[in-house]
Design a protein around this nucleic acid. Structure first.
Lengths: 152, 152
DNA sequence: AATATTTATATCGTTCACGATGCAAATATA
DNA sequence: TATATTTGCATCGTGAACGATATAAATATT
């Protein structure tokens, strides 16, 4: 048989595993503040631009609202953010950081670098990372379109 | 502020998104046979080598048994595989494909290529894939050790 | 203006991931 | 051989992901 079905030939398995392991690397850094990795992603989005409707956050993270809504509710329960109905558009829920949510940024300053440096290795260096980013971005862009096409 | 917290600078977010989107690309191909992507990974492992204890499958997929056990039970309920107590070691559960599980390989022949070709794009080509694999493998290897160190 | 369609969000059910914990069989140590 | 430790697997609880579906508000169409 050819190597078609060999696990070691699968790009997806590598992405899946790398993603899981790097999320695990975030865990000890985030859990001391009661955060999960997806919650940290929401914070990244809101730190860049506070006060956004659910949909904008979901789009930025390329997730569906049915994933993001419960996530936001948990963060609201933790006092990290507030969800208030939009004024212009009553369907929208505007998500806004609380003081606690904003202050988390100061407490997590060392997180990006800690994790960033922990993945650096022989073939992953400041020189090669841009190429890696490019390939991953291309794959993401490609799949975003392919996947959308197939449900139309 | 520097770009430390910018979502667009995060390797992990790219891996996480690429992994999710590529799993979604598998979905229409697998769901017609009642399979999920992690279940497909289990099949890849068992097609390579049938009749393995739970632990070997988990190690191959770099997952914990508490993830794999329920997964295998669902596949057992679907009649894809059997779980029988080991003879030499009564703690082990030996996982073996059924006829149905083996025959799935013939039905899924086109899956690897379909997904494989759907990620090919400008910067991801047969020439660049080995480099991508190398970087992902390095990252995985690195994190596997780092993550283990921190719980010891 | 009344009706249809679209949009923004939420709810529900199922399947992972995974930390924490439990338990019994196997192995090591005393 | 009795006791301690390790190993293999399972159970439990929580938080994602996500397909399917629901609901109400906004917009488009008639």
């Amino acid at each position: 048989m050819d190597g078609r079905f060999k696990l070691d030939n699968q790009l997806c398995f590598r992405l899946y595993t790398a993603s899981r392991l790097i999320t695990q690397a975030y865990h000890p850094l985030l859990s001391q503040y009661g955060l999960t990795y997806p919650q940290y992603l929401v914070l990244l989005v809101l730190w860049e631009k506070d006060s956004q409707p659910v949909n904008d956050i979901a789009k930025r993270l390329m997730l569906e609202t049915n994933t993001v809504t419960p996530l936001l509710k948990r963060m609201e329960a933790e006092g990290i953010l507030t969800r208030t109905q939009g004024k212009k558009d009553a369907r929208q829920m505007i998500v806004k950081l609380t003081k606690k949510g904003r202050e988390l940024q100061d407490k997590l300053t060392e997180v990006p670098e800690t994790v960033g440096s922990s993945v650096m290795c022989q073939s992953v260096t400041p020189e090669t990372v841009p190429g890696l980013f490019r390939m991953l971005d291309d794959i993401i862009e490609q799949l975003k379109h392919n996947n959308n096409e197939s449900n139309s």
